[in-house]
Simulated scan of single mutants.
Amino acid sequence: MSDNARAKLPLSLPTSLPSGLHARGRGAGSNACGRFEATRREVFDDGWDLTLEARVLRTEVRQETPRSALRRNTSPDIAFDRSINPYRGCEHGCIYCFARPTHAYLNLSPGLDFETRLIARPGLGAVLERELRKPGYSAAPVAIGTNTDPYQPIEAEYRVMRELLEVLAAFRHPVTIVTKGALIERDLDLLAPMAAQGLLHVGISITTLDDGLSRKLEPRAPRPARRLQVIARLAEAGVPVRVMVAPVVPGLTDAETEAILTAARDAGARAASWIMLRLPREVSALFRDWLATHYPDRAARVMGRVRDLHGGQDYDPQWGQRMRGQGVWADLAAQRFDRATRRLGLDGKLAPLRRDLFAPPPRPGDQLSLGL
């Protein structure tokens, strides 16, 4: 991020919210300072006892001028080596989101700031095009949506994901998309032809089929039934869809594994995957506070199971274990998932994406081949 863009970042909210300001429809219940902040802001009662008109905490968006699009990945337990992030922060507000700690690098809180102080990156498509035209660039599937959701609500206005898809389609570049957002249906005019060429996979994340639980866990994401409709619409258009049972929250959502897989298969999903709940850095405290607020009777049980999965800790970042956990509960979860996917015919993999079609489209003024 440029110094100019960083200077325009929205100011972090106070650690505690002022009286009269409501965080209705948000996942986090607090706004603890990020780990890199040198100062913190607190609400202070000056004794005047002035009444404030009740108001709801609004989403604020700032724009960044992007200097790069492709982000390289070398993690040994992840299948892709490059990704793109159209946005920083995510309005869906999923309390379990492992990307929340990235907001600390912006001197913003992984709590409420992460879901209310967002950064959009318009112009990212043009930056991507420059990178794809570099001599020696070799195409491989690019992952979008692995950090924050590219189809979160602000995409309707900023259309950064649409920019990226237009470039990727023109270059015939393979891409995988992960989302909860129903706005992906807007882009079927681009997605369907890419899928027909073998250039596209889509993963739709479903954590629970329970509307009440979903509204608490992921307050501004589409309802579970709406996500099943998205799977159906994508499948009808010929887009290969993988349902992602993610995250599995032990003691809270794990009992729904078979039901989620069955509903997704019936909607048209061709494959499935799962990830155990991950609580890195600040996410752990946020999630524990959330449990104490919404499910105090289950909090000890849920966190006890989480620690059983991670060697007695809230989270173990070891490669190969961080997304599954270890021990008897991890083994049982894996066996349960494997049996269900075999029974439902979801245990296969989606066909590999094509790389051989990649070709930068000609630009005005380019010398064309004579075709000899």
Score class of each variant (00 low, 15 high):
Arg62Gly: 13
Gln63Ile: 06
Gln63Leu: 10
Gln63Trp: 00
Thr65His: 05
Thr65Gly: 05
Thr65Asp: 07
Pro66Cys: 04
Pro66Ile: 05
Pro66Glu: 05
Pro66Arg: 04
Arg67Met: 07
Arg67Asp: 11
Arg67Ala: 11
Ala69Trp: 06
Ala69Gln: 06
Ala69Phe: 03
Ala69Ser: 13
Ala69Thr: 08
Leu70Asn: 03
Arg71Gln: 13
Arg72Ala: 10
Arg72Pro: 01
Arg72Lys: 06
Arg72Gln: 08
Arg72Gly: 00
Asn73Glu: 09
Asn73Thr: 10
Asn73Arg: 13
Asn73Gln: 12
Asn73Tyr: 07
Thr74His: 11
Thr74Glu: 11
Ser75Phe: 14
Ser75Leu: 15
Ser75Val: 12
Pro76Glu: 13
Pro76Ile: 15
Asp77Gln: 11
Asp77Val: 11
Asp77Met: 09
Asp77Pro: 10
Asp77Tyr: 11
Asp77Ser: 14
Ile78Pro: 00
Ile78Gly: 05
Ile78Ser: 11
Ile78Thr: 14
Phe80Asp: 09
Phe80Met: 10
Phe80Tyr: 15
Asp81Arg: 15
Asp81Phe: 12
Asp81Asn: 15
Arg82Ser: 15
Arg82Lys: 10
Ile84Asn: 07
Ile84Ser: 03
Pro86Phe: 08
Pro86Gly: 08
Pro86Asp: 12
Pro86Trp: 06
Tyr87Asp: 07
Tyr87Met: 05
Tyr87Ile: 06
Tyr87Ser: 06
Arg88Trp: 06
Gly89His: 03
Gly89Pro: 03
Cys90Gln: 03
Cys90Val: 05
Cys90Arg: 05
Cys90Leu: 04
Glu91Gly: 08
Glu91Arg: 08
Glu91Trp: 05
His92Leu: 09
His92Val: 02
His92Tyr: 13
His92Pro: 00
His92Phe: 14
Gly93Val: 07
Tyr96Ala: 03
Tyr96Arg: 00
Tyr96Trp: 01
Cys97Val: 03
Cys97Lys: 01
Cys97Ile: 07
Cys97His: 01
Phe98Ala: 04
Phe98Glu: 01
Phe98Ser: 01
Phe98Ile: 02
Ala99Ile: 01
Ala99Trp: 00
Ala99Phe: 02
Arg100Lys: 07
Arg100Val: 06
Pro101Cys: 05
Pro101Gln: 00
Pro101Val: 02
Thr102Cys: 00
Thr102Ser: 12
His103Tyr: 02
Ala104Ser: 15
Ala104Met: 08
Ala104Thr: 08
Ala104Gln: 09
Tyr105Trp: 13
Tyr105Glu: 15
Leu106Thr: 03
Leu106Met: 12
Leu106Ile: 07
Leu106Asn: 08
Leu106Pro: 04
Asn107Val: 07
Asn107Arg: 14
Leu108Pro: 04
Leu108Ala: 09
Leu108Thr: 08
Leu108Cys: 07
Leu108Met: 09
Ser109Ala: 15
Ser109Thr: 13
Pro110Gly: 08
Pro110Trp: 10
Pro110Cys: 12
Pro110Arg: 06
Gly111Arg: 08
Gly111Gln: 11
Gly111Ser: 13
Gly111Phe: 10
Leu112Val: 12
Leu112Tyr: 12
Leu112Cys: 11
Asp113Lys: 10
Asp113Val: 09
Asp113Gly: 09
Asp113Pro: 07
Asp113Ile: 10
Phe114Tyr: 10
Phe114Arg: 00
Phe114Asp: 01
Phe114Val: 00
Phe114Trp: 04
